[in-house]
């Protein structure tokens, strides 16, 4: 994954300039260089060993036909695992599901998060309590969230959600098998909305007071103030929320494993779940590894764009 760093390019120029200033233009004698590096090395070496070596092994596996149950059946097959992926319609479908689930969750949660943050930014009695209630979904263990939604909320016979729909005359729906992606999105959006709300709220509260006062003095209405002062200020918080949301949500596994098991069929499987299935239920190591490599390449492409954004966000703060 070091390639990501190589791709990042101009975005980090400001960052390295700042570092350069602190570090007196990189010109240390060798002893001083190593004195500076020493505190970094344990963390760096640990991270390289634990995260990069398995990935190199993944690349190796992806060029082989290998079965988890018969470790000796290792044959070099070149790129044929990759060709299989290109022909695999399930892979394409689960890739699409990944995009739908990730973007669906992040965007809906962001819109709800903005609304809630604006509401919570007003002073009213008990605001701290309301905020505490609102962030709680994010603090629930994801495994617990998954079972809470798939059973207590969405179960077709005793689920609370269907009962509520019944009150307004809608027949019970078996959410996890009829609309599996919608069911997963409900649980995910519920969990991630508080996260987005917290970030946006931090942005709202970082607004310069004097500018808002001046706007009020000039008789600018709420909408005017919001559109021309608040929204531009919020922009980088929203960007950061979407970016971090994508990083976390794209790897969603717990909810899919526990709510729908990717089903019916593979209708609601995302890439992490599909790769897991191929490796641990299909025992097809080579195929799963090749998919992993493809996912990493896709991630590098997306991430090298995203990292620019991160660095911009982190730069602005100082």
């Amino acid at each position: 994954m070091t390639t990501v760093a190589a791709h990042a390019g101009s975005a980090r120029r400001a960052e390295s300039q700042r570092a350069a200033r602190r570090a007196d233009k990189h010109q240390y004698p060798s002893a001083e260089r190593w004195r500076r590096r020493a505190p970094l090395l344990p963390a760096l070496i640990f991270t390289i060993v634990v995260t990069q070596i398995p990935f190199l092994v993944t690349i190796w596996y992806s060029l082989h036909s290998r079965n988890l149950l018969r470790p000796d059946s290792d044959i070099f097959v070149g790129l044929s695992n990759y060709l299989d992926i290109a022909r695999d319609s399930v892979f394409r479908q689960t890739a699409l599901n990944s995009v739908v689930i990730t973007l669906g969750c992040v965007l809906v949660a962001m819109v709800l998060g903005i609304v809630l943050a604006i509401l919570l930014d007003r002073p009213f009695r008990g605001r701290g309590v309301a905020r505490t209630l609102l962030i709680t979904p994010f603090l629930i263990m994801p495994v617990a969230t998954s079972v809470l939604w798939s059973m207590a909320m969405l179960n077709p016979t005793y689920g609370l959600f269907n009962w509520t729909l019944g009150l307004v005359g809608i027949d019970p729906v078996d959410w996890t098998s009829t609309y599996p992606i919608v069911a997963i999105l409900m649980a995910l959006v519920w969990q991630w909305t508080p996260f987005m709300m917290l970030l946006v709220l931090a942005g709202l509260q970082a607004q310069p007071k004097d500018v808002l006062e001046a706007a009020a003095m000039d008789g600018a209405g709420w909408w005017r103030t919001f559109a021309s002062i608040t929204l531009p200020q919020l922009r980088r918080y929203i960007e950061l929320g979407i970016l971090l949301g994508i990083i976390y949500v794209v790897n969603t596994f717990d909810q899919i494993y526990l709510m729908t098991a990717g089903g019916p069929g593979t209708a609601s499987a995302n890439l992490p779940f599909y790769i897991y299935q191929r490796a641990f239920l299909g025992f097809d190591v080579g195929q799963a590894a090749a998919m992993g490599v493809v996912v990493v390449i896709a991630t590098i492409i997306v991430a090298s764009l995203a990292l620019r954004l991160i660095f911009r966000s982190f730069d602005v703060k100082e």
Partner: peptide, 20 residues
């Protein structure tokens, strides 16, 4: 960048070698 990029590495891509 190196540190943050490891957070973007999908865990599923390394689970098989880690298991083996």
């Amino acid at each position: 960048f190196f540190f943050i990029s490891t957070k973007m590495l999908p865990v599923v891509a390394v689970i098989v070698p880690i298991y083996v």
